[in-house]
Design a protein around this nucleic acid. Structure first.
Lengths: 225, 225
DNA sequence: TAACCTGTTCAGCGCGGGTTCAGGGGATGT
DNA sequence: ACATCCCCTGAACCCGCGCTGAACAGGTTA
């Protein structure tokens, strides 16, 4: 297992490297975004720990470039405690998990284990749901191969629903993942988006569960099991 | 599923309450340790979210008293970022999980699901009872693979019965777990729900134990008694 | 400037579903 | 057997959730 640590704080960097080595990883470290990006681009890592606040090149940018270049390794991002928007940006850029500083190395190791385990099967960037396919990196939606035009908020919503297919997602959970911070409670924006999405991808794809929320389903995959 | 939230920060308290309600819990909240302790001592909760830094009575003390009083519900404690020692004290006092602020409600919900599942002895998010399977995350019910349409209250009730299969659940216990706080004593809502559920999943699934309550059973799995 | 596009707000409304009520039936105890 | 309680059931009520069309505001593009 090869791991890359990109962290500009020298102390934390060394501490992380040490911890991962102790846990059995082969570790490379970088102290700024450019070095980190270069290493990730050229070496085949199994998992990456990426700080977001970096000199020379921002963490989100690093991650975006990796993903654009087709790098699929799981990335765990480190964020300062109160930078919610960064987290969102990180996830949108293709991060697989996050951890807020300060944290316990114990927890970090647990999450890394989970990531490497999951990485075995879950590395594609497009999510399929019946005839519907969602390109999470390119922010595009196709229905039966034909492109569907969706706005950025619509896409975020659909993307989140798709990441949790067959689960009921409450309206507030959607809100929390679409917007930073909080948001006017009594607003029906979500419902409007759901309505518009249904017009575009078909009424039967997004089920509403009264009193609970919404659920993305594949209507074809119903008849008996 | 009834949940108690003990958190002194009014904003966070409301936010948590809201999130849990959206996730299908019936939620009570308390703003200080004394109120929290009282509620936990008198009401039958399925899971408790307990902040450690509380006015009037410290969270660890609250937890200790509950445990000394024989309360066994799973407790997830919330800690400020840098209070590791509190965490340890919390575990020693009988906590089942912890989460450091700030956190994502999504993560909190996942951990709560894990706790309630573990407390009932289940490991997956779907509960099986003969031909009946209940998807707790998707809020769906299947009978022999075929989907059954249930309303949110019906689902809550069935879900609670399923979490305690083969146990007799009193009507008041059901009421307490479906609604927050109290509720008109002489109302036959529960009976109506039971009736409607029986119409949907079969009459022999829910036994009524006269004078005591109801019990969810697998009719196939009881040749003779 | 005018013509978009996107996100948000608002009012109206249909209907799903939670609640209530009345009546009947079945179980239980004496 | 009876009386009594408990539970079931169908129907009706009615609140409010969620859907919708439309309009508005801000930003971006011609």
């Amino acid at each position: 297992m090869r791991a890359l640590v990109v962290e500009d704080d020298p102390d934390l960097n060394r501490q992380l490297g040490r911890a991962l080595e102790d846990a059995g990883y082969a570790v490379d470290t970088a102290l700024d975004g450019e070095d980190g990006h270069f290493l990730g681009d050229t070496e085949p890592y199994d998992v990456v720990v990426l700080d977001l606040g970096l000199p020379k090149m921002d963490g989100v940018t690093v991650l975006e470039r990796w993903r654009q270049g087709g790098k699929g390794f799981p990335v765990l991002i480190l964020t300062a405690r109160d930078r919610w928007s960064e987290k969102v940006a990180g996830f949108d850029a293709g991060a697989d998990d996050y951890l807020t500083k300060p944290f316990h190395t114990e927890e970090l190791l647990a999450r890394l284990r989970a990531l490497t385990r999951r990485a075995a099967g879950h590395t594609t960037s497009t999510i399929e749901c019946g005839e519907l396919s969602i390109d999470t990196r390119g922010a595009r939606v196709f229905i039966d191969g034909a492109p569907v035009k969706v706005t950025s908020h619509e896409f975020r919503m659909l993307s989140y629903l798709a990441h949790h297919q067959d689960r009921v997602i409450s309206r507030t959970e959607l809100v929390e993942h679409i917007y930073d911070q909080d948001f006017d409670r009594d607003s029906n924006t979500i419902e409007v988006f759901v309505g518009r999405l249904r017009k575009k991808i078909g009424n039967d794809r997004i089920e509403t569960v009264r009193g609970l929320g919404y659920r993305l389903v594949d209507p074809e995959a119903r008849p008996v099991s």
